[in-house]
Design a protein around this nucleic acid. Structure first.
Lengths: 193, 193
DNA sequence: ACATCGGCTTAACCCGGGTTAATGCGCTGC
DNA sequence: GCAGCGCATTAACCCGGGTTAAGCCGATGT
């Protein structure tokens, strides 16, 4: 079977990776229905997760009950909890399926064993972290320098296919506005056509 | 001489690092006066930079001339441009000294050579990226889930020594409000004592 | 001593998004 | 078919921060 994980790794790696086939045997495929919780804040994660199909959200739920979406992950994306890499680390956010999802789960342990023994694998882990850091950096930039309306415009431009896939309230939580606020923005922006 | 860079690496490394002394010989110390530009958006960076003393800001300057501060870096912090790690990458932000700074510059090339040859060094690079990603993640979270006033409160609580070190306009640019707006917030918050 | 300049303070007005609430619509389950 | 629920829509009102502008204060240079 052809794994999305393997495609991802091959695309990121700058050198051939020995032991790929053995590692791929450790991948477990899990399925979730739309709305299902994939993991919750406080959980210990022991694997890297790669989206084979579907769409999910990573979200912070505040004590007040408000939900803010950290990221939206679609086919080909990978996620986990950075904190969970630390020995005593727990996820600080929830992962919830928006559409039905198939997730490939690759345990950290054998990946880290390879990375500790083989510089090519260590390089791959590096690329994964680099890709992650780059994503966070772009998002930080948008949140810092753009107002809500500009954030919506950019999202609609750069990820048009996503606009139809996520509920408006989720998009609002992702952009950092309330659902009512986003609805107003959409009406205003789309009205100008 | 004792390098901040070496202390940082030893603190992050999980295994002994062979060749540390040789690498440290490649470190160049640079000094900047307050207000000096350390690098500008568009520059190619070829080194990792570690703050030995002083305080600086990394900032996006928009076409409109508005400046937003991505991060504040004080003694012991390290920075560079993630984009600059890519072959054709340029920094997307400016680095400007707030106080007079001494910066240790460590060229990427010998560090990457070590990382490609020695898994212990690859592990260190991993830790550096991990620390960076964690920082970005926390900031993203604050920007997404907190309103300006709450961001100021958190900053004043978690980094009280910084409040006196940075100009109010810089703190405003860091928190994502205008100087006038921040001044209002401070008056409001401090008034409640 | 004086002029200059940048940053802080304050005030007045504006506006975008928050809040609350009512309405309608489509989906699900019975 | 019908009840119920969650989400989108719309409206009214509120408020925090943006904008503009004026005055002030301290540091700097002459």
């Amino acid at each position: 079977m052809s794994l999305t994980t393997q495609k991802l790794f091959c695309a990121l790696a700058s050198e051939p990776l020995r032991g790929m086939d053995n590692l791929m045997k450790r991948v477990v495929l899990r399925s979730y229905r739309a709305g299902a919780t994939i993991f919750a804040a406080g959980d210990r994660l022991h694997d890297l997760r790669i989206v084979r199909s579907g769409l999910l959200k990573l979200c912070y739920v505040l004590p007040s009950g408000d939900e803010w979406i950290k990221s939206l992950m679609a086919e080909g994306a990978f996620f986990s909890s950075i904190a969970a890499l630390q020995p005593a680390g727990e996820a600080s956010f929830d992962a919830v399926a928006i559409e039905a999802c198939e997730i490939e789960c690759l345990p950290f342990a054998p990946l880290m064993d390879l990375a500790r023994a083989d510089v090519a694998w260590a390089g791959l882990v590096n690329e994964l972290l680099l890709a992650y850091a780059t994503r966070k950096e772009l998002r930080e930039r948008d949140l810092l320098t753009l107002k809500p309306e500009a954030r919506y415009r950019r999202f609609a431009e750069t990820e048009p296919q996503m606009v139809g896939r996520v509920a408006q309230k989720d998009l609002a939580a992702y952009l950092g506005v309330t659902p009512v606020g986003l609805n107003r923005i959409i009406r205003r922006v789309e009205g100008k056509r």
